Amino acid sequence: MAHNPYATSAPPPLGGAQAMPGATPTGYPGMYPPQLGMGTLKPRLPKQPPLLKASLQTLYGTYGTVLDIVAHGNLRMRGQAFIVFENQDMATQALTATQGFPLFGKPMLVQYARTRSDATVKRELHADNTSDQTDVNVEEYKQQRREEKAQRDADRRAAIEWLTATMHYSAMVAAQGGPQPGDPNVPPHPTELPASVQTLLYPGMALTTPVNQAEQPNCILFLQKLTPEITEGDLKELFAKFDGFKEIRLVPGRSDIAFVEYEQEDQAVKVRTELTPDYEIRPDQIIRIDYAKR
C-alpha cells in the first residue's frame, strides 16, 4: 500500500464497524479511502529551533559581551546565525573555544563574518554623533551595502550569461566544422569583461590586458589566440621542455585560451622571455603568452 503523507492514523469507526476492502470509510474525521493509504501526519518543523537564540546567548555570553544575535528563518539562511561581540578579542576567543561544539546534535562550524554587523556600525557611529545623526549614517551604510550586493548579483548574472553564450558558440562552431569569419555570435574575449566578472570566472587568476599582464610576473602563464587545431598535446610538447613545468589547464568551452603553470615564478619568466610574448607555434600561427593576474 502506498504511503500517503497527508493521511492520519485513527481507530475504526464508532460501533466497531470495519471498512470493507475498496470501500470508503465515512463519518469519522481523519479517515481516508484505502486507495490513498494510511499514515501519520508529520508535524511541521519550525524554521529555526525555538531556543536557538537563547542557547547561543547562553553559550557565547560566557566569552564576552554579546551585542546582538541574528538568526534568519528563511530557507537559504537556515542553520546559520551571527553573534556580534563587543570587540574582536572576545570574538576570537569564542571562535576558538566553540569550534566544533555540538549544538542541537550537530558540530558547529564557526568563522568570522565577512562584513561588519549593523550593531557594530551603529555602536561605532554613536560614539561620535548624536542619536539622530547616527540613524542617518547607519541608513547610509545599509544603502551602500545593498548597492554592493546588487553589484555582486549583477556580476554573477554577467558571468553566467558569458558562460552560456560561450558554450552555445562552441557547440555551433563544432556543428559548422569551424569558426566562421565575421560571426556576430562570437562572445567577448575574457579580457574584455569587467575585472569583477573575470574574478568570478577565473578565481585567483583574473585576466587583464596584455600590457598590464606583462608587468606582473607570475608562475602561471596565460595563453591567448589559440586555434582549435592546437591540441593540449601540442601545448605540453612546447612548454614541458622547460624546467619546473607542472600542468596545462584548458578552459571548458573556450578553445582559444589556456593556462600553463610552473613551480616557481622565475621559471615562468624564463619561458616567456625565451618564447617571447608573441610566439609562432606553427607557420603563420601566432599565440600570445602573458602572465595570469594574481
Rank of each mutant, 00 (worst) to 15 (best):
3 H>N: 09
6 Y>N: 15
11 P>S: 11
19 A>Q: 09
22 G>D: 10
23 A>D: 09
24 T>E: 02
24 T>D: 07
28 Y>I: 10
29 P>G: 03
31 M>H: 01
35 Q>H: 07
37 G>Y: 14
38 M>E: 14
47 K>V: 13
49 P>V: 14
54 A>R: 14
75 L>V: 13
77 M>W: 09
77 M>D: 13
78 R>Y: 00
79 G>M: 04
83 I>T: 01
92 T>Y: 02
93 Q>W: 01
94 A>T: 11
95 L>C: 07
103 L>A: 09
104 F>M: 14
111 Q>S: 12
112 Y>C: 05
115 T>F: 08
127 A>N: 06
134 T>Q: 10
137 N>Y: 07
139 E>W: 06
146 R>K: 15
156 R>N: 09
157 R>M: 10
158 A>V: 01
162 W>P: 00
163 L>H: 07
165 A>E: 03
171 A>T: 15
173 V>G: 04
176 Q>Y: 04
180 Q>N: 04
183 D>P: 10
185 N>T: 08
188 P>F: 01
188 P>Y: 09
191 T>Q: 04
195 A>Q: 10
199 T>Y: 04
205 M>P: 00
207 L>H: 00
210 P>M: 06
212 N>T: 05
214 A>N: 14
217 P>W: 08
220 I>V: 15
221 L>N: 03
226 L>F: 07
234 D>R: 12
237 E>L: 11
241 K>C: 12
246 K>E: 15
249 R>L: 04
259 F>T: 13
266 D>A: 01
273 T>K: 13
276 T>R: 14
283 P>G: 05
283 P>E: 09
284 D>Y: 03
284 D>Q: 11
285 Q>C: 06
292 A>G: 08
293 K>C: 05
